[in-house]
Design a binder for these strands. Structure first.
Length: 702
DNA sequence: AGAGTGGGCCTTTTT
DNA sequence: GGCCCACTCT
């Protein structure tokens, strides 16, 4: 004990690595030098391993500022840094930990001139970006009515994908927007105009944060060597979800010391639609020739029964590092596969099971329903409301994305950067009688002034409603310019004409005003405008402050979530609903083998969220206005029949293959069941429809 | 030019 | 349930 006090820095806890980690984890923590790929299966203690690795580095005398820890979400960054601090019992101030975007932002502020911006550049979110592209469309006089033309939002998605995937625009069109292929030249012009506008507005969008830094590092060896020289250890989380640019950043930033440890699970790569490239992780060993590969396959989360379903399904994927999760938990019930007559019955079943589980002591908050697409939850929501089962829909609108919060932020952004065109548009459009066209015209003139103070003095040669709107907006800015505290600025705007606007426009104006007061309270933590704006742009919610606010009303609620949003989370009981072909996997994601493999990974993510109980359900009726029937998801057919319990619902019709059914041109098989819900003897027992014989046989013999 | 209304369509989402 | 589009009226 005494040696510890002497050898460890003041206040630092001594960590017993051998005792607190399993052998797989310990190996990574002790031997993670050089280029390392850590394949961390679901529930294998990934975060634990990373945090211990960081703690170990610090224990070894590595200085915090020499460590760079990259994550995808703010939540992950916060959690990891908090856990490292808890482990060490001391602060990790100085450590570079954060999202790719926030780290890029931090670096770019210091090199702004080198990337054609000033140090106070504005960060545009997706909506700002879309508005700006809309302006480009107007400016270029693109005829968007003559034929089907992509909306500003669609163009934003296209150019964003193109940048993140490092692909020419044509390739993106060919692959995902074939009907716009002939518009490539026009879209290129819109894109170029968008680039110019961002530069003129001293603004960058989210993609620019990554791209500008990547290009800076690639083109300026002096900058690269300086930064890479600083980062002796680079760690990247969720590496399976990195895109081309992020992979470049990891490589460039670790180029001096070559201590790069990436952690991820190729089996959980589910974000290709936003340009994540699974090849980054699959080819890591080749890209980094000397790389070591570690595998974390001991699963602490799920029962062996749940894991055998997960293992069986993911084994069907071709492009992967083969691995099998090993259970340490005790055996329990087999997962249930449940065909219901229709969506209503499926919802009823889920609701009944939830209540039954609650009766067995599983709190509602420890249960979740997962689905492929957000609107798949509809029937279930009706059912839960009918029964007064409290639920929480994950992923509503983020606080900083709410219109009224963004309106206020736009005012503050202009104080910081009067060239910010997207903010001008937003503020001006709030004035009665000023629409998009007039706002663009006024913004154009207002931005000509070097300082906001000069602009608000000018009358801009406007007439009528436009002049009135401008005077009103300028009046607000005159008062704002006298303020220095972000919180005061927020209260000032919220108390003025904006308040009347909210009252006039929204029935829930009082709620919105409450939000704005909350926002002001949050802002009190900041005393300079630039750092406040950065926080608002790059953070999803107001961190720890928020958790406290919700504490009082911690209600026992079931969670409803898309599978994507459920990644990284876990519950005692998980229901995966709508597991029908065309729904999950989604119809539009079945075009290629790679797409189906990603859908399968998504299913794998869903299954591995469950700790003890898993229910896989689907409705047989394809819709309320059709006699067509769903086939089970192909993923259900991949589960060995004896790995699950096939539940036949009471009064539920029993599916059989109709002897009269014919295979239609589109390959769909018609299945019928008898009207009374009586079991009809299968006509072709043991038949192998579509390779799913095992599964169907299981149903028939139930 | 702007504001209001009805109808059809839905992948997935973080920064 | 919500969003975008087309259409209509002021």
């Amino acid at each position: 004990m005494r040696e510890f006090v002497l050898s460890a820095p003041a206040g630092r806890r001594r960590i017993d690595y051998e005792k607190e980690l399993n052998a797989e984890q310990l190996d990574v923590v002790l031997h993670g030098d050089g280029a390392c790929l850590v394949l961390a299966g679901a529930g294998s203690g990934k975060t634990r391993t990373i945090t211990y690795r960081v703690a170990h580095l610090l224990d070894q005398g590595v200085r915090p500022e020499e460590i760079l820890l990259l994550t995808f979400t703010n939540k992950a960054a916060r959690e990891m840094l908090a856990r490292v601090e808890a482990l060490l019992g001391s602060s990790v101030a100085g450590l570079w930990g954060g999202t790719f975007h926030s780290v890029a932002n931090r670096i770019l502020r210091g090199y702004a001139a080198d990337v054609g911006r000033t140090a106070s550049f504005t960060i545009l979110d997706q909506e700002d970006s879309r508005d700006l592209i809309g302006l480009c469309l107007k400016d270029l006089h693109v005829d968007t009515t003559a034929r089907r033309f992509p909306s500003a939002g669609t163009i934003q998605a296209i150019v964003s994908y193109r940048r993140n995937a490092a692909l020419p625009l044509r390739d993106v069109l060919e692959r995902s927007y074939e009907s716009f292929l002939d518009l490539a030249p026009v879209l290129e012009r819109v894109d170029a105009s968008y680039e110019r506008r961002k530069r003129e507005a001293d603004a960058v969008d989210f993609d620019d944060l990554l791209l500008l830094l990547r290009d800076l590092l690639a083109q300026r060896p002096d900058v690269r060597d300086r930064l890479a020289g600083q980062f002796r250890y680079v760690l990247a989380d969720e590496y399976q979800d990195t895109n081309a640019i992020q992979a470049d950043l990891v490589r460039l930033l670790s180029s001096a010391h070559r201590n790069v440890l990436v952690v991820g699970d190729d089996a959980q790569s589910i974000y290709s639609f936003r340009a994540a490239d699974i090849r980054n992780i699959l080819r890591f060993p080749e890209t980094y020739g000397e790389a070591k590969t570690f595998r974390l396959v001991t699963n602490y989360r799920s029962t062996p029964e749940i894991l055998s379903v997960a293992n069986a399904v993911i084994a069907q994927n071709r492009h992967q590092f083969k691995k099998e999760l090993k259970a340490v938990r005790a055996s329990a019930d087999k997962p249930c596969v449940v065909p219901a007559a229709n969506a209503q019955q499926e919802a009823q079943y889920v609701a009944e099971q939830m209540l039954a589980l609650r009766g067995e002591g599983v709190a509602l908050a420890d249960q979740a329903v997962l689905f492929r697409a957000a609107f798949h939850s509809q029937a279930l929501e009706f059912e839960l409301m009918k029964r007064d089962i409290p639920y929480e829909y994950r992923g509503g609108m983020k606080f900083f994305e709410r219109a009224h919060v963004k309106d206020i932020v736009a005012h503050l952004r202009l104080v910081a950067n009067p060239k910010d065109e997207a903010a001008w548009l937003r503020v001006l459009a709030l004035q009665p009688g000023v629409g998009a066209v007039t706002a663009a015209r006024i913004a154009f003139r207002a931005r000509a002034f070097a300082a906001l103070a000069e602009a608000v003095q000018a009358d801009l040669d406007l007439t009528g409603r436009a002049a009135k709107g401008w005077r009103q907006a300028a009046g607000v800015f005159e008062k704002l310019l006298a303020q220095s505290q972000p919180a005061d600025m927020i209260r000032l705007v919220a108390a003025g004409a904006y308040r009347d606007y909210l009252k006039a426009e929204y029935p829930d104006a009082d709620d919105r005003l409450d939000d704005l007061e909350q926002f002001a309270l949050f802002a009190e933590g900041y005393d300079d405008l630039p750092s406040f704006l950065t926080e608002v742009s790059l953070t999803d919610e107001y961190g720890a402050a928020r958790a406290g606010a919700d504490d009082g009303e911690a209600e026992d609620r079931v969670v409803l979530s898309t599978v994507h949003q459920a990644k990284g989370l876990e519950w005692d009981a998980v229901f995966v609903i709508n597991l029908a072909e065309g729904k999950f996997p989604h119809q539009r994601a079945m075009g290629s083998r790679d797409e189906i493999e990603e859908e399968r990974r998504l299913f794998y993510v869903a299954v591995t969220r469950a700790r003890k109980r898993l229910f896989l359900t689907y409705p047989l009726a394809a819709g309320h206005d059709t006699l067509a029937l769903n086939r089970p998801s192909p993923f259900l057919l991949e589960i060995p029949a004896d790995a699950v319990e096939h539940v036949r619902l009471r009064h539920a019709p029993h599916p059989i293959r109709d002897p009269r059914s014919t295979r239609r041109d589109d390959g769909e098989i018609t299945i019928v069941f008898d009207e009374l819900g009586e079991r009809v003897p299968p006509s072709a027992k043991g038949g192998k429809p579509n390779g799913g014989g095992e599964f169907l046989r299981g149903v028939e013999e139930y």
